[in-house]
């Protein structure tokens, strides 16, 4: 049985919000009986774009991540629901029945991904339904995918075994693996949102002129082990990425021809940028 999965490439998302606008376009003012009741015009982010800016200017990067109902196979909302208000379709999609779920706030509260929204007025929990009403009407994918110009938001309908294989091949991960809810939404390049970097610019003085040092060797050590190696570019820049947040102490060692070796300690909380490393 082929089932729906979403694959979100964090590195591609540029925060244009077209997917969130398409969701509003589809659900605000439109009732899709059996699938979803009208979405409130404001306050609900069925697809929610979050931003993470890392580092300090000018050594920064920024990533966006669309977060939505993960359509988990082991969904806490399924267990929290009474009267069968939440169902798992054969194609993997979770549907919260807008009639049966009335008054069941515990469904919204059960989601560890914070992706079920409580509609105060209608007193129902609501999610992005993967546009199931459109898929059932013959659409080949949800609107978020259709409107995405970066290729960040893709969906595939695959056997679970095929999806598992693809996940390994592409290095796909889940957003909150600690909850082990078996999500059907997969993330690529999640490190851009989740992890930290240590970046720097290396320079040195010759005859009174300061210039960037290109080709310096930079190594990163953690607990005595080398965990990264880099070479500075023409701007003297280096960057070690995919380091865990609050990852503890690291040592950065820089060597360049004709210069004294230079090293310094970094205690990693969040990403850190060292814009003016001077070699002597």
């Amino acid at each position: 049985m082929k089932k729906w999965n979403a694959i979100i490439d964090v590195e591609k998302c540029n925060g244009c919000h077209l997917c969130t606008l398409a969701v509003k376009d589809e659900y605000v003012g439109n009732d899709w009986p059996g699938y979803s009741a009208e979405m409130p015009k404001h306050g609900h982010d069925w697809i929610n774009i979050k931003q993470k800016v890392r580092g300090q200017a000018p050594l920064v990067d920024a990533a966006y991540i669309p977060v939505t109902c993960q359509h988990c196979d082991d969904a806490p909302c399924l267990k929290a629901a009474k009267n069968g208000a939440v169902t798992k379709r054969d194609d993997g999609i979770i549907i919260i029945d807008p009639e049966k779920s009335r008054g069941q706030k515990q469904i919204a509260e059960s989601c560890p991904h914070n992706s079920i929204f409580w509609n105060e007025e209608k007193e129902i929990p609501q999610i992005w339904t993967f546009d199931a009403h459109l898929l059932d009407d013959g659409w080949t994918g949800p609107r978020a995918q259709q409107v995405c110009a970066t290729g960040c938001f893709k969906t595939v309908k695959l056997e679970d075994s095929e999806m598992k294989k693809l996940a390994v091949e592409e290095g796909l991960e889940h957003l909150n693996p600690e909850h082990d809810t078996k999500p059907r939404v997969w993330y690529k390049n999640l490190f851009r949102y989740r992890d930290c970097f240590i970046a720097g610019s290396v320079a040195a003085e010759s005859d009174g002129i300061v210039d960037c040092v290109e080709g310096a060797t930079v190594s990163l050590k953690h607990n005595g082990d080398q965990v990264g190696a880099a070479e500075t570019d023409i701007y003297g820049d280096f960057k070690f990425d995919q380091l865990p947040e609050n990852g503890g102490d690291y040592i950065v060692e820089i060597t360049a021809e004709g210069r004294e070796p230079h090293s310094f300690k970094v205690t990693l909380g969040e990403s850190q940028s060292f814009s003016d490393i001077m070699l002597t």
Binding site: N14, V53, A57, P58, V60, D61, A63, Y64
Partner: peptide, 15 residues
């Protein structure tokens, strides 16, 4: 500003 194009493409940011 580390603008939207810089965000998407990466590269060297001169500010």
């Amino acid at each position: 500003y580390f603008n939207d194009t810089a965000q998407m493409l990466g590269g060297k940011w001169i500010a």
